[in-house]
Simulated scan of single mutants.
Amino acid sequence: MHQSTWFITGTSSGFGRRLTEALLERGDRVAATLRRPDGLAELAERYGDRLWVRALDVTDPVAVRTVVDEAFADLGRIDVVVNNAGYALFGAAEELTDEQIARQIDTNLVGSIRVTRAVIPHLRAQGAGRILQLSSMGGQIAFPNLSLYHATKWGIEGFFESVIPEIAPFGIGVTLVEPGSARTEFAGSSAAQAEPMAVYDDTPVGEMRRAAAAGEFPVPGDPAKIVAAIIDSVDVEPAPRRLLLGSDAYHLVQEALTTRLAEVEATKDLALSTDVDGPADTR
């Protein structure tokens, strides 16, 4: 097994931390970024120069460019870039503050875009590389009480749908990783909450809150198996465009796409009826 070098954002907890630990354990090098680098002190002591750590807040555009450039300069080559930094924001759209909305979009969506734009020139110069974007089953489905989180995940998927063919000629592959519910800290300590309004108590938003508080949502995903699948995906050629992970992710996304396709078919006659009469104008 050859040693690979990975660049991972958001490594303090969740999948970012678990990926870092698994990769170091198997002998790879990891450039790990997080807002408080002392959070990886134990791993740094154990693995020495195979772990490269820097402070990074992906909402800081200058810092993103600086840290990415420094990582490639210090490590020489980076095989896999993992956009993992992000968090969940819970609340009905009306309940969220402008500041909460801006921070959610700047972290989950714009932050991933910044990192991607910063690494592309380096990967292009290498003539190869893989980008793994942590999306979610929430990049193809949506629940009440999570509108802004879904906006960022649907947004980053749309971004990469365009970018994938842009960078494919340079040997750069991309995979959108779409886990379902997993037993990580994601919906706990790292999440943000809007101030609830009583008017939503007897609506689907209120139902979601009560179910979550009561622990009624199944959490089938095994983080260790998910991390192993993510790591294994980089050896698949060509890069799988999407990696659905978890039984809930498969069933919910399959149902959503089937429903959406039926809705598309229902519009067929109307859609075709709105074309110009006669041959299409190519202007």
Results as ranks from 00 to 15, higher is better:
residue 99 E to L: 14
residue 99 E to M: 07
residue 101 I to S: 02
residue 102 A to S: 12
residue 103 R to P: 03
residue 104 Q to F: 06
residue 104 Q to T: 13
residue 104 Q to G: 02
residue 105 I to L: 14
residue 106 D to I: 03
residue 107 T to Q: 10
residue 107 T to P: 07
residue 107 T to H: 11
residue 108 N to K: 05
residue 108 N to T: 03
residue 108 N to H: 10
residue 109 L to V: 07
residue 111 G to S: 12
residue 111 G to C: 05
residue 112 S to N: 11
residue 112 S to A: 15
residue 113 I to N: 04
residue 113 I to R: 06
residue 113 I to D: 07
residue 113 I to C: 12
residue 114 R to A: 07
residue 115 V to Q: 12
residue 115 V to P: 02
residue 116 T to L: 09
residue 117 R to V: 08
residue 119 V to C: 10
residue 120 I to R: 04
residue 120 I to E: 00
residue 120 I to D: 01
residue 122 H to P: 11
residue 123 L to G: 03
residue 125 A to C: 03
residue 125 A to D: 13
residue 125 A to P: 01
residue 126 Q to Y: 00
residue 127 G to I: 02
residue 127 G to S: 10
residue 127 G to H: 07
residue 130 R to I: 04
residue 130 R to D: 05
residue 131 I to L: 12
residue 131 I to Y: 06
residue 132 L to S: 09
residue 132 L to C: 01
residue 133 Q to E: 13
residue 134 L to F: 05
residue 136 S to Q: 07
residue 136 S to F: 10
residue 136 S to R: 04
residue 136 S to G: 11
residue 137 M to A: 09
residue 139 G to P: 11
residue 139 G to Q: 11
residue 139 G to M: 06
residue 140 Q to G: 02
residue 141 I to W: 02
residue 141 I to S: 00
residue 142 A to Q: 09
residue 142 A to T: 12
residue 143 F to A: 10
residue 144 P to W: 02
residue 144 P to E: 00
residue 144 P to A: 01
residue 145 N to L: 04
residue 146 L to F: 13
residue 147 S to V: 00
residue 147 S to C: 07
residue 148 L to E: 08
residue 149 Y to R: 08
residue 150 H to P: 09
residue 151 A to K: 07
residue 151 A to F: 04
residue 152 T to H: 05
residue 152 T to K: 00
residue 152 T to Y: 03
residue 152 T to V: 00
residue 152 T to D: 01
residue 153 K to I: 06
residue 156 I to H: 14
residue 157 E to T: 07
residue 158 G to F: 01
residue 159 F to K: 09
residue 161 E to D: 15
residue 161 E to R: 15
residue 161 E to A: 14
residue 161 E to Y: 12
residue 161 E to V: 15
residue 163 V to L: 15
residue 163 V to R: 12
residue 163 V to M: 15
residue 164 I to T: 14
residue 166 E to W: 13
residue 166 E to L: 13
residue 167 I to N: 08
residue 167 I to R: 09
residue 168 A to G: 08
residue 168 A to N: 05
residue 169 P to I: 02
residue 170 F to P: 01
residue 170 F to R: 08
residue 171 G to F: 08
residue 171 G to D: 11
residue 171 G to T: 04
residue 172 I to V: 15
residue 172 I to W: 03
residue 172 I to C: 10
residue 172 I to R: 06
residue 173 G to S: 10
residue 173 G to Y: 13
residue 173 G to H: 10
residue 173 G to A: 02
residue 173 G to D: 05
residue 175 T to I: 10
residue 176 L to S: 12
residue 177 V to Y: 03
residue 178 E to N: 14
residue 178 E to D: 13
residue 178 E to Q: 14
residue 179 P to V: 00
residue 180 G to R: 03
residue 180 G to N: 11
residue 180 G to D: 06
residue 180 G to F: 08
residue 180 G to V: 11
residue 181 S to L: 13
residue 184 T to F: 08
residue 184 T to H: 02
residue 185 E to N: 06
